[in-house]
Design a protein around this nucleic acid. Structure first.
Lengths: 149, 149
DNA sequence: AGACAATCGGACATGATCATGATATTTTCT
DNA sequence: AGAAAATATCATGATCATGTCCGATTGTCT
C-alpha cells in the first residue's frame, strides 16, 4: 500500500491534531476520531514525540499538541518519523565490483523512491486541511464521530 | 522501501531471466546470480508462474523461461504479481457519510500511489537491459558471480 | 499539603504476515 | 531405471499490528 499501516495511522493522527491545532488532545479522543486502536495509537504518538513532531503533556488536562504549525510539517516528515523511505545508496546485491553506481534495476527503483519522497515533501499537513475549509469534505473524511464522551 | 523485499527479489529474478531470454534457467543458477536464498526464490517463481509471467519445465533440462519478451513485461506487472500496489478506492476509516469521494489525506495518498504505478508501468524489463548493452553496467550490477556450478 | 483522578509512558504478550530453511513428492529427460 | 528438476509441505525467527497493565506525572479539589 506504498506506506505502512502505521505510517498511515500517524498521518491520520497528525491531521486530526492539526484540525484542532493549539488545543491539547487526549489519546482516547484521537483514537475515536481517527478510528485507530487506542493502545496502538499510543505507541505511534510516542514515536512522533521522539521525532519532535508532537509535544506531550501528562496528567490532568494533558494530551498532545503539534510542535509546529500544520503548514510547517510536511507529509514526508511524518512518514519518515515512522518508517523512513530510504533512498538506495548501494545495490542490494552488494558485489565489490560496483561500489560506485547502481545497476539499471536499482537505479530505477531509487528514482521511483526519490519521486515519491519529493511528492510527499511537496505538501504539508496544512494542505490537507485547506481543502476541507473550501467545502467538499473535511480533513479526515468528515469524521466527527461521537463528540468526546 | 517502497516495494517489499519479495517484490524486489521478483524483479531481480525476472531481469536475470531476461538477460538470458530463450534459455531455460534453473532455480539454483538464478539464486546464485541474483543472490536470492534459493528456497525462497523457488516460492517467488511459483507466484510468477501462476501470474503467467514465467513458464516452468520440470525434470532434466527443465527450469524457467519468460512467457513474454522482456519488452512486453512492465516492471509494474512483476510487482503486482507479488504484492499488488492497490489504489485507494475508499477511505480506510469507512464511515457511511463519504461512500463517494476520499478525504484530502487519502486522496493525496491515492494520487501518490497512482503516480508510482504510472512510473512502474512506463518502463519494461527490456528497458533495464538496454542500458546494460550500452556499456556502463549490466542489468544486474555486473553480476556474473561464479558461472553455473 | 495531601488525596484523587486523569494522562502519558513503558513493559510484556499475542496473532498475523514476511522472509527463510529443510524436506519430501512429483514430473520429465536421457 | 535413474537423475535432475520443479512443486508442495512443514517449520522457524523476525517484524508488524494489536491488546493489557501498571507505573510515573501532574492538574484540581478539598
Amino acid at each position: 500500500m506504498l506506506i505502512s499501516q502505521t505510517a498511515e495511522y500517524a498521518l491520520r493522527a497528525i491531521v486530526s491534531l492539526a484540525e484542532r491545532h493549539g488545543q491539547s488532545v487526549v489519546t482516547q479522543d484521537l483514537a475515536r476520531r481517527t478510528r485507530i486502536p487506542a493502545g496502538y495509537l499510543s505507541k505511534i504518538l510516542q514515536t512522533l514525540r521522539r521525532a519532535g513532531l508532537v509535544h506531550s503533556q501528562r496528567g490532568l488536562r494533558g494530551g498532545f499538541v503539534l510542535q509546529r504549525a500544520p503548514d510547517k510539517i510536511s507529509v514526508l516528515e511524518v512518514i519518515d518519523a515512522i518508517e523512513p523511505i530510504r533512498r538506495m545508496t548501494r545495490c542490494p546485491l552488494d558485489l565489490p565490483e560496483h561500489a560506485s553506481g547502481l545497476c539499471p534495476l536499482h537505479r530505477r527503483l531509487d528514482e521511483a523512491i526519490g519521486q515519491v519522497r519529493n511528492t510527499f515533501a511537496s505538501f504539508s499537513i496544512a494542505d490537507l486541511l485547506d481543502e476541507s475549509r473550501r467545502g467538499v469534505s473535511r480533513g479526515l473524511c468528515d469524521t466527527v464521530a461521537a463528540p468526546a464522551r
